[in-house]
Measured scan of single mutants.
Amino acid sequence: NQASVVANQLIPINTALTLVMMRSEVVTPVGIPAKDIPRLVSMQVNRAVPLGTTLMPDMVKGYA
């Protein structure tokens, strides 16, 4: 199973992502692939993302 990107903490709306905010985990449904973590750094979330939430492409500005 492919690992997805999961929030390692509460990420407030419009926050630029950093490595410490994200972890990889095998979850259902599948979200953004963990291999894309380096690409996500500095991108902003367009909503508040609670701890443990799988990041989906529509949550990150400029990803999709």
Rank of each mutant, 00 (worst) to 15 (best):
N46Q: 12
T53A: 14
I11A: 01
T53W: 12
A34Y: 07
Q2T: 13
V49A: 07
M59I: 07
M22A: 02
T15Q: 10
L51R: 07
P29N: 10
R39S: 12
Y63R: 03
T54N: 02
P57L: 05
V49G: 01
P50K: 09
I13W: 06
P50H: 13
L10V: 12
P57F: 11
M22I: 10
V49E: 01
G52Q: 04
R47F: 09
N8E: 13
A34Q: 04
Y63M: 05
T15L: 06
A64F: 04
L19D: 14
P29F: 06
P33R: 04
G62V: 04
D36K: 03
P12T: 10
T15P: 02
T28W: 04
I11Q: 01
D58Y: 06
P33D: 15
A3I: 11
I37H: 03
K61I: 14
K35S: 15
I32C: 08
L51T: 14
V45Y: 00
I13R: 07
A16F: 07
T28P: 02
V5N: 01
T28Q: 09
N46Y: 10
V6L: 06
A3E: 15
V60E: 02
L40C: 10
G31I: 02
L51G: 13
Q9L: 10
Q9N: 05
P38V: 07
K61M: 09
V20S: 13
V6M: 04
S24W: 05
E25H: 05
D58W: 05
P38M: 05
K35H: 15
V5I: 08
T18S: 08
T15W: 04
R23V: 13
I13A: 06
A3Q: 10
P29M: 06
L17R: 00
M21L: 06
P29Y: 10
V49H: 00
R23Q: 06
V5P: 01
N14D: 11
A3Y: 08
V45Q: 01
G52L: 13
P38G: 08
Y63P: 06
L55F: 12
L17S: 00
G31H: 01
M43I: 04
N46C: 14
L40N: 00
L40S: 00
G52H: 13
K35A: 15
Q2N: 13
N1P: 15
V45G: 01
I13F: 11
S42K: 09
V60H: 01
A48C: 13
Y63D: 04
I11H: 01
L51Y: 12
T15N: 05
L40A: 00
A3D: 15
M21I: 03
D58S: 10
P12F: 06
T15D: 04
M56G: 04
T54K: 04
Q44E: 14
V30R: 03
V49D: 02
S42V: 03
K35N: 15
Q44G: 05
V30Y: 11
V6R: 04
A64M: 08
L10K: 07
Y63G: 04
N14L: 08
P33W: 07
T28H: 05
A3H: 15
